[in-house]
């Protein structure tokens, strides 16, 4: 009886004291602790769980550096491949931005255009791109253009739908303000709808940027001609069972994906952050 009564009290006290302590910690401490925890588990699996014959499945973290990042030949392989993939991804993203914005602006001009074209944007998003990749190879070769096309197809939808949403989000009163001055469509588009849509457009671009990187890597797996990108490298390391190199390439690709997301977030903030209240 006494024990069951005491336990919850003790537990509550302990919980509230940890909460008080964690409030005093700098914000970066908890994620770093999690990271250290993951490293510990990782080492444990590499050295204790895995048999040395299958150690390549999860090489100890430091070997990713000693055997890959710190080896100039391997590092330069990875960076050159990354640069090529970045070129593919950014080209695809750029084209997707142009096509996406024009497509959305077209749809925003008239209900009937929207009704005729929007279903195709949705279809584009729903068809499994992987299933189409062999076809793209057939039609456009197995080189740079084919890789870019995959990126465009993957990155297009968020830009189309966000831009359209942004263009249509203009307040009625603001529209009427322009209408009262008998502003023409072009003026309404350039001075009202487009600026109003910019926050949404940038949100779309940020999503698409990450997708374009995925597209570039996926393209590499299918299109083996032309300059190999980071995807080809990953698949080579995989087939050669080069564990540390494989992990190094994957980490590099991931860091690049995060970086491109952050950069476009920053760009968007530069462009609209001053006036746009994202908390609204």
């Amino acid at each position: 009886m006494t024990r069951t009564l005491e336990t919850p009290v003790a537990a509550t006290a302990a919980r509230s004291s940890t909460r008080r302590r964690s409030r005093g910690l700098p914000r970066w401490v908890p994620p770093v602790l999690v990271f250290l925890g993951i490293l510990a588990v990782w080492y444990f699996i590499s050295y204790v769980v895995l048999d040395p014959s299958v150690a390549f499945l999860l090489p100890p973290p430091h070997t990713i550096f000693t055997e890959a990042f710190f080896k100039p030949a391997t590092l330069s392989d990875i960076l050159v491949a990354l640069a090529r993939s970045a070129g593919v991804a950014l080209t695809g993203l750029g084209i997707a931005m142009i096509i996406g914005v024009i497509w959305a602006v077209g749809m925003s001009q008239a209900r009937w255009i929207e009704r005729s074209l929007f279903p195709y944007a949705v279809i584009l998003q729903c068809i499994p791109i992987l299933a189409l990749v062999p076809l793209i190879g057939f039609w456009f070769g197995f080189d740079f253009p084919a890789r870019v096309i995959v990126c465009v197809m993957i990155a297009l939808f968020p830009i189309v739908s966000n831009t359209l949403f942004g263009l249509q989000s203009v307040e009625k009163g603001q529209r009427e303000l322009f209408q009262l001055q008998k502003a023409n469509r072009w003026t309404v588009l350039t001075k009202l709808e487009f600026p109003a849509a910019l926050p949404a457009i940038f949100a779309g671009i940020r999503i698409s940027a990450g997708l374009a990187v995925v597209g570039a890597i996926v393209g590499d797996f299918f299109f083996r001609r032309g300059d190999p990108g980071i995807g080809s490298l990953i698949s080579n390391y995989q087939s050669r069972v080069q564990g540390p190199e494989l992990f190094a390439a994957i980490i590099t690709a991931s860091v690049f994906g995060v970086l491109i997301f952050v950069v476009f977030g920053w760009l968007g903030n530069r462009a609209v952050g001053k006036w746009y209240d994202s908390g609204k």
Binding site: G173, Q174, L177, L192, P195, Y276, D277
Partner: peptide, 14 residues
Amino acid sequence: RIGYVFQDATLLPW
């Protein structure tokens, strides 16, 4: 020359 003031200010935020 007609001025029109709406219920909300309808300023362009940018």
